[in-house]
């Protein structure tokens, strides 16, 4: 039953922030650009030096080796990044074919060249790449930012299923109010480095 807790997390102009996300819960954050939404997610993933602490269940971030923490509390960046020629080279553990179908990606997509994929295809593939690591909590930075309405629905449905099946805790940054209505149980506005409850 993974739950994610933030205790007095602070990084640069953001925080200190306290937040608790129960298992199988999805919490959304919105905020103006530059308000530090990405900084907050990076601090939770321990990619930036920060104050305060994040806990997965009762385990503090600093108690786990950094790579292990990042596999368990996985950040999916707004812009997907690729370092090898072929899509499949980025998947250490192969890919769940059911998820590929759900995102309308053919099985042959693993043999595609990265350079020939559209931004939207890359974003969907990058999400699957992270889900294959079976994270207990997900930090999603505008996961549908480069997708059309149809692609957005596919991703929302997949993430919803993942959350309920794995009891995963989701922290989802979105600028789309309608999307927040659809996916979140709670939502916050990040303003001046503080979280304000939206509903």
């Amino acid at each position: 039953m993974p739950s994610l807790q933030l205790r007095q997390i602070a990084t640069r102009h953001v925080g200190p922030i306290d937040l608790s996300i129960g298992s199988a819960q999805c919490v959304c954050i919105r905020g103006a650009s530059g308000s530090g939404k990405t900084l907050l997610l990076r601090a939770i993933a321990d990619l930036d030096p920060h104050r305060g602490d994040a806990l997965l269940d009762a385990t503090s971030c600093s108690r786990l080796p950094a790579p292990e923490w990042r596999r368990a509390v996985a950040l999916v960046a707004a812009e997907s990044q690729w370092w090898s020629e072929r899509i499949g080279d980025h998947f250490d553990r192969g890919v769940e074919s059911r998820w590929m179908e759900q995102l309308a990606l053919p099985a042959a997509a693993l043999d595609w060249e990265v350079a020939r994929c559209s931004t939207g295809e890359r974003q969907r593939l990058a999400l699957l790449r992270t889900l294959m690591q079976a994270p207990a909590a997900l930090l999603l930075d505008e996961p549908t930012g480069n997708l059309d309405a149809e692609g957005t629905r596919w991703v929302e449905a997949l993430l919803d299923e993942y959350r309920r099946e794995r009891q995963a805790a989701l922290l989802w940054v979105s600028h789309d109010g309608a999307q927040i209505e659809r996916v979140a149980q709670r939502s916050y506005l990040l303003d001046d480095g503080r979280l304000q409850a939206l509903r």
Binding site: L47, R71, A77, W83
Partner: peptide, 14 residues
């Protein structure tokens, strides 16, 4: 290549 290196870290690579 900062973004790429950090994406790899975020995937749990050492």
């Amino acid at each position: 290549r900062r973004a790429v290196i950090e994406a790899r870290l975020a995937l749990g690579q050492d």
